[in-house]
């Protein structure tokens, strides 16, 4: 892909050069230390050829004499070998919800990644932009970034890759996502943990509107020693529907119909219920040391990336 086409694609995804520069100074915070294969810019549990001192151990035959601590030998007359922290690459798994409910906010005649003239964007589009930004952060830090689509099952996959040059594949992948089907986090994440043996950070970008509950899916990640993080995408319109009066509400995922007369009091009750749902999700995440960020599509995603995610300690 030539440079012009790449720039156009990045611009379509809402990235300009300045934003990308800013992203390059960031990296995703991992609370745990994961063992990597390749040398990278992250500490690992393994001691190796890094520059940061980690420990001493007794010398054994065959060890590299260059790492003998001669000053200790002089003081204590013991041959101790200096150990350094080995810097390894991190696996970042971005799990993006592509269920039908993520279509909310978009218009059929408009690309998912682009905001409409009214400033609205589909939740999936917003999630894709956020995912792309996170992926860029990871790629820029030589982490291995993989992206998976979540629906009723684990439905799409961008295999792990490293280096900023892979960002265009990320764009391609994300642009190819279409909202469809139900949300079933337990099944989709179940498939994910079965397939992925390499542990790492698993960031779930979703609205967490799972009729069967989001808890089991997030717990599966924890049980399989991933470091889960949750970014909940919310469209402000879903908190304040534009219509009033006699309506027929349709569930975007199940197609379930229900007649309702939308009054101010009913909307207030709904808002309370929605807040409680989100608070429950936040409390669930907090109690299980799962990073949680609530992202409203009304917030420009660069602001979200550069300010909100940093303030939340999600990236640094």
């Amino acid at each position: 892909m030539d440079q012009t086409a790449a720039s156009t694609q990045a611009a379509q995804a809402g990235f300009d050069q300045q934003f990308l520069k800013q992203l390059e100074y960031l990296h995703i915070v991992a609370k745990k230390v994961f063992a990597g294969k390749s040398r990278a810019e992250r500490r690992s549990r393994g001691q190796g050829s890094g520059i940061e001192f980690a420990d001493h151990r007794d010398y054994t035959a065959g060890d590299d004499l260059r790492y003998l601590d001669w000053s200790v030998y002089g003081r204590m007359d013991r041959l101790l070998l200096r150990l350094f922290e080995q810097e390894e690459d991190l696996h970042i798994y971005l799990l993006i919800d592509r269920s039908a409910s993520m279509r909310l906010g978009g218009r059929p005649d408009q690309p998912l990644l682009r905001r409409s003239s009214e400033g609205r964007i589909a939740k999936l589009g917003y999630a894709a932009q956020l995912t792309a930004a996170l992926a860029y952060v990871g790629l820029a830090n030589l982490d291995r970034v993989a992206i998976y689509g979540l629906g009723e099952r684990l439905s799409a996959e961008l295999p792990a890759s490293r280096g900023k040059g892979q960002i265009f594949k990320v764009f391609d992948f994300l642009a190819g996502l279409t909202p469809d089907g139900k949300t079933d986090l337990r099944t989709a994440i179940g498939e994910f943990v079965q397939r992925i043996k390499r542990r790492g950070i698993a960031i779930v970008v979703s609205d967490f509107y799972d009729h069967n509950g989001y808890e089991e899916g997030l717990n599966l990640l924890r049980y399989h020693r991933f470091e889960p993080a949750a970014i909940q995408i919310i469209d402000p319109v879903e908190l304040n529907p534009p219509l009033r009066g006699d309506l027929e509400i349709v569930d975007m995922e199940t197609g379930e119909l229900r007649e309702v007369t939308l009054s101010q009091s009913l909307i207030a009750a709904y808002k309370r219920e929605h807040d409680a749902y989100c608070e429950t999700l936040a409390a669930f995440c907090k109690s299980r040391s799962v990073s949680y960020i609530r992202a409203e599509t009304a917030i420009p995603f660069d602001e979200l990336t550069l300010r909100v995610l940093r303030q939340g300690g999600f990236i640094r």
């Binding site: 349709v250 569930d251 007649e259």
Partner: peptide, 22 residues
């Protein structure tokens, strides 16, 4: 009666809960 307008909602259980109260 009047034909009702349609409103797509992402997660009907929340509405059901609210409507269940009413």
């Amino acid at each position: 009666r009047q034909r009702r307008r349609r409103l797509e909602v992402p997660f009907s259980p929340l509405w059901q809960k609210v409507l269940g109260q009413s």
